[in-house]
């Protein structure tokens, strides 16, 4: 049989070239009579089918199948794991954000007007207001559950005994200077007694009130010390240290 020689050349070019060479080969085969005759011959039953029968007995080694399945599952696993990790991170971030927002909302809602007012109050302003009205601005006679209630009839505190050497310590003047400062804010009770289950707002108000009262006491003590220190001829720091050592 005479083969189409042009097919050989085009087939070689197609094998080495790109799509353009392949299209040229296909165009030639579609119109070439000799190639069409070869194509008809290819439809005949091949005598090589039986000859090649031993090749059909080849089977894939089981180890190859096992390794392929293992590789396929291993390569398919990381995206799933990454997705789970990402999902967990997303849930954790969302939970953190929700907690943050809820915490801020609670904090803002618990900041009552009384608390805000107390935050803005300082000791000098309290003194001025007290001097003008004659009554304490903040009346905190509500005692702590385990603390003794303040009695309006109580006598002034014991005079501050200053362990100093002569000259005359003049304890009366120390008491006169300190007592009015120590007394007035812990008197009349206008705050109702705490509920058996006080709310958070009540608790915050009580804490701020107590803090303010302590500030007033500290301020009074400081001013009292400032008043008596020149008379005693001792620095305020030494007097404060001596007072703190009293029983």
């Amino acid at each position: 049989m005479t083969y189409c020689t042009q097919f050989d050349a085009l087939a070689e070019a197609a094998a080495l070239g790109g799509p353009r060479e392949a299209r040229a080969l296909d165009a030639h085969v579609a119109t070439c009579a000799a190639c069409a005759a070869e194509a008809v011959l290819a439809d005949d039953a091949s005598d090589l089918v039986d000859v090649l029968a031993p090749l059909r007995a080849e089977v894939c080694p089981p180890a190859v199948v096992t390794a392929a399945l293992r590789d396929a599952r291993r390569t398919a696993r990381p995206p799933v794991r990454a997705a789970r990790t990402f999902s967990r991170l997303r849930v954790a971030t969302l939970a953190f954000a929700v907690t943050l927002v809820v915490g801020l909302a609670l904090r803002l809602s618990l900041a009552s007007p009384a608390e805000v007012a107390l935050d803005r109050t300082d000791a000098p302003a309290l003194e001025v207001a007290t001097a003008e009205t004659g009554a304490p601005l903040v009346e905190l006679s509500t005692p702590a559950p385990d603390a003794p209630a303040a009695d309006p009839t109580d006598k002034p505190d014991e005079p501050v005994k200053v362990d100093v050497a002569p000259p005359d310590p003049a304890p009366e003047r120390v008491a006169a200077a300190a007592a009015p400062r120590l007394r007035p804010t812990l008197t009349s009770a206008t705050v109702p007694p705490p509920d058996p289950a006080p709310t958070a707002s009540d608790t915050l108000a009580a804490v701020h009130g107590l803090r303010l009262a302590l500030a007033v006491v500290r301020d009074a003590r400081r001013e009292g010390l400032a008043a008596v220190a020149p008379e005693l001829g001792r620095p305020q720091v030494a007097l404060a240290s001596s007072i703190s050592e009293l029983p």
């Binding site: 392949a22 296909d26 190639c35 070869e38 290819a42 090589l48």
Partner: peptide, 22 residues
């Protein structure tokens, strides 16, 4: 990814070459 006629021509020539080799 070849046209049908091209497949048949290739196959015909491939069989001829294999037969000659064997």
């Amino acid at each position: 990814s070849l046209p049908l006629t091209t497949v048949k021509v290739y196959l015909h020539r491939g069989r001829a070459r294999l037969r000659a080799a064997l």
